[in-house]
Design a protein around this nucleic acid. Sequence first.
DNA 1: CCAATTGCAGATAAATTTTATCCATGATAG
DNA 2: CTATCATGGATAAAATTTATCTGCAATTGG
Lengths: 166, 166
Amino acid sequence: MKISSTIEWAIHCCSLLAGLPPEVNLTGKDLAEYHGVPHPYLAKALQTLSSDGILMTVSGPRGGYKLAKKPSKVSLLDIVLSIEGSDSCFDCDEIRQKGPGALERSASYKKPCLIASAMWKAEKVWRDELDKVKLSDLLEKVKTEVDPRQLKKGADWIAQRTQSKK
Amino acid sequence: MKISSTIEWAIHCCSLLAGLPPEVNLTGKDLAEYHGVPHPYLAKALQTLSSDGILMTVSGPRGGYKLAKKPSKVSLLDIVLSIEGSDSCFDCDEIRQKGPGALERSASYKKPCLIASAMWKAEKVWRDELDKVKLSDLLEKVKTEVDPRQLKKGADWIAQRTQSKK
DNA sequence: CCAATTGCAGATAAATTTTATCCATGATAG
DNA sequence: CTATCATGGATAAAATTTATCTGCAATTGG
Ligand code: FES
Ligand code: FES
């Protein structure tokens, strides 16, 4: 029941991009360096986000990634499902139909198993909670809760990166 | 983000045991056969449940497992955490402290990262939801929602098993 | 006491998934 | 035309999950 660490990378990348002006984009390499993670592997995640319509891609020199939608239209759930896939994390093998207590096939297994239902319900509240949090909400909070020196340092690095490529 | 299938086995075993009279116990082999799963591997899960105080163990001939607490005192969360371990499923590598945007160590990273907070919050609602569901709740619902023929077939098999060992 | 039954702990092996890298290709700004 | 950048596929290393085996301790019933 582990969530892969690329999720952390992906969300950080998206929320960084969400804070940039619309005309700016960052390359996969920039994003990797900024977060101190291996570029080739992060690239995979960025490609996935892009093919799922969360990021936009600009190819060619001075290309890179930017957010494909408004920050208020992208939730943490969108990012998580894009990277991890949207399959349920609990998957019922219908073991109730396997042992000696089982009835003939086609019999009365119309309703899902009570246990599976409970697990899925819990997963639903998890997803709902993540869907409530949009990138725009994070941006709001960042303004008030993060050390301004840190924000400046990050912004400077990005400015320098985007400048030096002109 | 997959939940291992032994969870399904473990919950089914516990809820089966929860429905039995207090003096009855089932061996690991019985439980494996009943659910059609490999005995040696299921045994591992049963051992874990037992060392976490969810199941009780009776050794020696006519020994086996029974529930260690009242069904109303065991939640799905208890079982899940016992098998999967109680670590958070999202684990934050503090990548915010790694890139060029990071400040000197010891600086202002007292509050957890906003992203990690959001992920943990979602995990909390998931756990809370699972903790609401007790084995006794499942037993209640089983009575009204499961095909009586199925219940009888299972009960007969168990009765035969526990008889033949006398 | 003895012998059979059962759970327990640890080592180990197979299978699968996650993590990571590389390269050939195509697009594009300058 | 050329250097930059994303893409998709292939591949490899590492970690985790799944599964099995073995020897040991506890207990019961005779
Ligand atoms: S049969 Fe899959 S959870 Fe019950
Ligand atoms: S640093 Fe780990 S989630 Fe932000």
